[in-house]
Write a protein that binds this DNA or RNA. Structure first.
Length: 424
RNA sequence: GGAGAGGUGGGUGAGUGGCUUAAACCAGCAGUUUGCUAAACUGCGGUACUGGGCAACCGGUACCGGGGGUUCGAAUCCCCCCCUCUCCGCCA
């Protein structure tokens, strides 16, 4: 959520920035915010003055009664009682303006960083780096949804039986490979200085608002109606919300947390050839890295997080490319996002396996996540997160890219974790 | 799920309608003293919104778990909710 004071002070810059997202309502919405803000402040001024008067009058009543001037006290009491009606209606007015302000601000996405290119969709993203060579597979190479059947390691039909489409059952070496990847990713995160967190995988409404899944994206999350809890779509939600309403001391920074969780997504979108197999699921596993940083360090942190993720992909011997997302393809909350895509050789497609974002103060403003500087001023922090990594498409690429006549070769770095070097 | 007790500032904790502008202590910051450290002494206090001012700064309002209510006036009284603790029940 943008800060209203910044909307007020940097109106043109914000409108220009939002234009890069192809966000068409920007100017109208911003103008509504400004108009409402002016009304809100005018109302508050009048209300505060009236309350100040009531407060002094009330104190005076106490003094008059103490000194026995009952008549004067009674007269003043009547006058304050009259003011009270005005206070009530002004309070209702102010409340309405405040609600309206939130409602408007919730509709406005984050302002892209100046280096983010304008654009409307995936075609406008910029490939900033590419690594590795695309393997040349035999003509009879199989896509991963065939390989998993051939080697009996992941079972979609069993998942359908016990849960539904999009809930795969991992079996034998397939399950072991999942556990190996999770442990590998967590160990790597630890070596990059992240503290490991095991958070709850259901969260309350306040947490959903804190990281921006609510109010607009509730359709994306599974909801436990009985208890008012949401299944997390990503560990970002609980791990970032650890710091909701927190004023951190400067010497606690930077904060680096990482955690493995299953992730749940309802994904109302279409199902077809491009989402076959492991490409899109309702439940999947992911290790998430989250950093909380001072403003002046957050873009260095973003680069560090990308380097971490790229290192993982290189160790897994997967060809990948790094995209700087254009304004129109970035998430609502993000000021700058890099996507990492691995090449899945049998599908002949790039698959997004990680998204690394700097949200600047957009989440922190909702979270009320600040730090107190040595000068004693409290300032909003920057939040960042990235997948490091999401498993299913990594598994898809490993299966497809590493298939041989003898079976599927496990990347060397994973062998200590799997305990086997081939799936056959 | 049932019964009882609680929720006050960074921490401990006092506070049964106006004397609270939330005591006191601890921690913190600044200063004095000091060869250094420690101690002692003095002073300062949080957050959000907001008014005036280029600014330093000077004001206002709100905030004692959350929301409502009573009252001229609420940390204090009433109602609803959330959470914590103790005991019971259930249970990996």
């Amino acid at each position: 959520m943008l800060q209203v004071a910044i909307v007020r002070e940097q109106t043109d810059k914000i409108i220009a920035g939002l234009a890069k997202r192809n966000f068409k309502d920007a100017k109208a919405l911003i103008n509504q915010v400004l108009e409402n803000d002016q009304l809100r402040r005018d109302t508050q001024k009048i209300l505060d003055e009236l309350k100040a008067k009531s407060n002094t009058d009330s104190r005076k009543i106490g003094e008059l009664m103490k000194s026995g001037k009952q008549d004067e006290a009674a007269a003043l009491r009547a006058s304050v009682a009259a003011d009270k009606d005005k206070v009530k209606s002004l309070e209702a007015e102010l409340d309405a303006y405040e609600k309206k302000q939130l409602e408007l601000l919730y509709k406005i996405p984050n302002v892209p960083h100046e280096n983010v290119p304008a654009g409307v969709g995936a075609d406008d993203n910029i490939s900033v780096y590419q690594h590795g060579t695309v393997p040349q597979l035999d003509a009879d190479a199989l896509p991963h949804w065939e390989l998993i059947k051939k080697y009996d390691i992941i079972d979609f039909d069993l998942g359908i039986k016990i849960s539904g489409a999009g809930f795969p059952v991992y079996k034998g070496k397939g399950a072991r490979l999942q556990r190996a990847l999770i442990n590998f990713f967590l160990d790597e995160a630890a070596s990059f200085g992240y503290r490991e967190i095991q958070p709850p995988i259901v969260v309350n409404e306040a947490s959903g608002y804190g990281t921006g899944q609510l109010p607009d994206k509730e359709g994306q999350m599974y909801f436990v109606n009985e208890d008012g809890l949401y299944l997390i779509p990503t560990a970002e939600v609980p791990i970032t919300n650890l710091y909701r309403d927190v004023l951190v001391a400067e010497d606690e920074l930077p904060i680096k947390n990482a955690g493995y969780t299953p992730c749940f997504r309802r994904e109302a979108g279409s199902w077809g050839a491009h989402v076959r197999g492991l490409n899109r699921l309702h439940q999947f596993d992911k290790v998430e890295i989250v950093q909380i940083r001072k403003a002046e360090e957050s873009y260095q942190a973003l680069d560090d997080m990308c380097a971490h993720v790229q290192g993982l992909l290189e160790k897994l011997e997967l060809p990948y490319r790094k995209l700087l997302l254009c304004g129109g393809d970035m998430g609502f909350n993000s000021a700058m996002t890099y996507d990492m895509e691995v090449f899945s050789a049998a599908q002949q497609r790039w698959l997004e396996v990680s998204s690394v974002s700097n949200f600047e103060t957009f989440q922190a403003n909702r979270l009320k996540l600040r730090y107190k500087s040595k000068e004693g001023k409290s300032q909003l922090l920057h939040t960042l997160n990235g997948s490091a990594l999401a498993l299913p498409r990594i598994v898809a690429a490993i299966l497809e890219n590493n298939q041989t006549k003898d079976g599927i070769r496990i990347p060397k770095v994973l062998v200590p974790y799997t305990g086997f070097d081939i799936i056959n």
